[in-house]
Design a binder for these strands. Structure first.
Length: 132
DNA sequence: GTTGAGCGTT
């Protein structure tokens, strides 16, 4: 019977070590998400990944492109496997230059859904009310 | 043939 063990465990969990809230006062959200900008308009995801994979394990690399122009917007996102690696890469690649252009690396914001929510429950009538 | 601050589905 280790019922007591659970209680002790719970007590330990409840008794947090000192008062540690969030030491991130001047740090934006995102743990392992990195925002990379200042990229050349000719850079690719693989290039960024190759450049950042040297500091840690890059889990995901996403570069934004323009649908109207077809060229890269000059900024992208890099996902690291660990926050330590992301921090290291950010501190190391931030201010450096890639492809002849200075890089701007920072923690990415918490954005994953371009649209909040879209429940398709419009037209509940039928063939009536059709304008066009 | 161009240009250069930024935080997302191209």
């Amino acid at each position: 019977m280790r019922k007591a063990s659970l209680i002790h465990f719970a007590r330990q969990v409840i008794n947090s070590p000192s008062s540690s809230h969030c030491r991130s006062f001047s740090s934006p959200p995102s743990n392992n998400k990195l925002f990379v900008a200042g990229l050349s308009w000719s850079v690719d995801e693989k290039s960024l990944k190759e450049a950042f994979s040297s500091f840690g394990e890059v889990s995901e690399v996403r570069i934004m492109y323009d649908k109207d122009s077809g060229r890269s917007r000059g900024f992208g996102f890099v996902n690291f496997s660990k926050e330590d690696e992301a921090s290291s890469a950010k501190d190391a690649m931030d201010g450096k230059a890639l492809l002849g252009r200075p890089l701007k690396v920072n923690f990415a914001l918490d954005k994953v859904n371009r649209e909040p929510v879209n429940t398709r429950h419009s037209n509940r009538g039928s063939t009536f009310g059709r304008s066009r």
